[in-house]
Design a protein around this nucleic acid. Structure first.
Lengths: 368, 368
DNA sequence: CTGAAAGCGCTTACAG
DNA sequence: CTGAAAGCGCTTACAG
């Protein structure tokens, strides 16, 4: 036992180390199985033809030692990893959670794993996530976020690994982009209400800025609304917009509280289903019935839409298709000379029970 | 433009490799900055006192090369990693998604990162997740799942790294367990209904088996229900139970469809909020009002509870407290001689608007 | 079918 | 404050 000063306990382990038993390594397995280290590696990876007898000896040794190959050592020695980095905004948000799930399944079909990072809408965290993934020598990276960070994008592009981005404004050189037709989706939503007979429309949107620019997906939804309204202008539409301050349901609820009595509406279109959930709450708190008094349309087709009361009419974005595009973009990258590949992802309206012909009586509802 | 043969391009890259530019390594940075490799490492890790001038030269070189340390190489060379492995059942489920989020924040406070794996309730995937995490030489592992796999548990324990499990039946030697007081929570839920005056109770539970055993958390909820009913037996309660076949909202909806007209109830208690969401739907499809006709109580306090119509009375499990316990169990493990450390996590009832005094008229509702 | 050896890209004493 | 060298635990030609 060595002498040490009183300050540092003489049995202290290195910082971070705990009292684990020593981790067995491949050499331990080889010794126990009386084979060489290369042989153990071969049975672990299914390479080479190892006799059944040897293989069994090795397997037994592995089990009895509780051996697990060290990920870092094996990936360092290996040429490539079979993992796709996935950056999403937030896992609480059903759209991202469902997309992450779909991505994992799609990647699995190509024998790849997903390494998942959430940014919580923070550009700093997006950068950190990208750096961490790049350090992990991933096979490709998908940035499926609503916010976008220029630095993070530069890092990705500079790395030269295959990449794909969701909803950015234009094609990216040597990368791929997936553009969701949010504009068309929103347009369809508004037209649906108009065709049902609604003339007094309220748009609950979130124009919160990220890095000084409005999210493209939200901008497209704005445009879709405007386009539809313009197309039916001759019908004498009365439209109003409420801006909310965040992606939460609470904001949707507050939006309604502030709009009621101030503006007239029989149909509401919202930026996301989560916001629509808050809108339901706001409406119901004022004893307004959906769809008898007010029709509501959401956006995203989250899992819970079918279970709201009434089930929410919404615009669907297929997570499966999105995942297929993303994985294809990463695993079958175009020739590097490419100007940037772009995928288009359609949306479609799913009509459920939250929308109906407006009640003429309630149409006159206005400021008290 | 180079000539290539039609079949095998003579410039073909090794399989798995794509056309990335060569990844810079620490030596490249050192050369560019005219320092030694050890110096670069020191500035990367903030070790040693490097002169500001040198540090800047190194930083510039890093930036201009787009250098990212290789995670595998650095972790291989390092003694320990600062990451906690977290295994959850499913990320679609709000309870797990919210817990994962809380764990990440709590771990962050201790300068640790989370490596997250979802099992989708599959024991095989649980085992695979554990193996992958063990290969990653994590500092500790938290198994926060509703299903449990014996093999996975053995692997964890054999590894000797600090571990913590949620909701297992008894303390685990050399490990830690967190027991949620689901029994007490359910008991409180039932008592709440009884005290409001409900005498006809329906329990919508999920007794689906995993590996031949009912989930402990569900068993405890069953017991809580039974205990409460027994305690108030003298009041002449009429109780019924419907078993559903899965964790989804659909199952809850079907449960109600099958119960209505067959049994009498004015108050419903459900195993989870997600199921309660389906129950709402089932009730509302039959034009039954909540809480005027039927009161409903959920379990978990998912994000969406506040936004259902009406807001759902439920039993809350604190994700923050759970995370604190888990991280403490991992980062401040008891002496290895310990018999197994156990934490108890309380639950509490949150009364919202889905429960009320029963309407005497609807109490008599029964089979047609 | 098996073994010895080089090398993956870092970190970390250690010597200057 | 800086540099040369050993070593982390694997994989993968290569030679038998």
């Amino acid at each position: 036992m060595k002498m040490k000063s009183a300050k540092t306990p003489n049995l202290s382990l290195p910082k971070g180390a705990t009292s684990h038993r020593k981790r067995p390594k491949i050499q331990d397995v080889a010794t126990l199985a009386s084979v060489s280290l290369g042989t153990v590696s071969a049975v672990l990876n299914g390479n080479g033809r190892i006799s059944a007898a040897t293989r069994n000896r090795v397997r037994t040794a592995i089990a009895s030692l509780g051996y697990h190959p060290d990920l870092y050592a094996s990936n360092l020695a290996r040429k490539s990893t079979q993992v796709i980095g996935l950056v999403v905004s937030n896992l609480q948000n059903p759209f991202f959670a469902e997309t992450a799930q779909a991505m994992e399944e799609e990647a699995g079909r190509h024998n790849h794993q997903i390494s998942l990072m959430a940014t919580n809408f923070s550009p700093e965290r997006q950068r950190a996530a990208v750096e961490r993934l790049l350090g992990a020598r991933i096979a490709g990276i998908a940035v499926i976020t609503s916010e976008h960070d220029q630095d993070a994008r530069k890092l990705v592009l500079a790395s030269g690994i295959p990449s794909v981005f969701l909803d950015v404004d234009k094609p990216i050189r040597n990368s791929a982009t997936i553009s969701v037709d949010s504009r068309g989706g929103m347009q369809a939503a508004v037209e649906h209400l108009i065709k049902l007979g609604h003339r007094d429309l309220l748009f609950v949107r979130n124009s919160e800025k990220e890095n000084g620019t409005v999210l493209l997906s939200h901008k497209l939804r704005d445009e879709g609304f405007a386009t539809a309204v313009r197309a039916y202008n001759s019908l004498g539409l009365n439209t109003n917009t409420v801006d909310i301050s965040g992606p939460g349901a609470d904001a949707g609820q507050r939006a309604i509280a502030s709009a009621i009595g101030r503006v007239r509406f029989t149909g509401i279109v919202t930026v996301t289903d989560t916001v629509a959930m808050g809108v339901y709450r706001g409406l119901q708190a004022r004893k307004l019935r959906i769809p008898q008094d007010v029709s509501v349309v959401g956006f995203d087709d989250a899992y819970f839409c079918r279970f709201l009361n009434p089930p929410l009419t919404t615009v669907s974005i297929s997570r499966e298709e999105l995942s297929r595009m993303a994985v294809e973009a990463l695993l079958q990258p175009q020739l590097p000379s490419g100007r940037g590949r772009s995928f288009n992802l359609g949306t479609h309206l799913i009509v459920r029970e939250s929308t109906a012909t407006p009640n003429t009586k309630s149409r006159t509802m206005r400021a008290g």
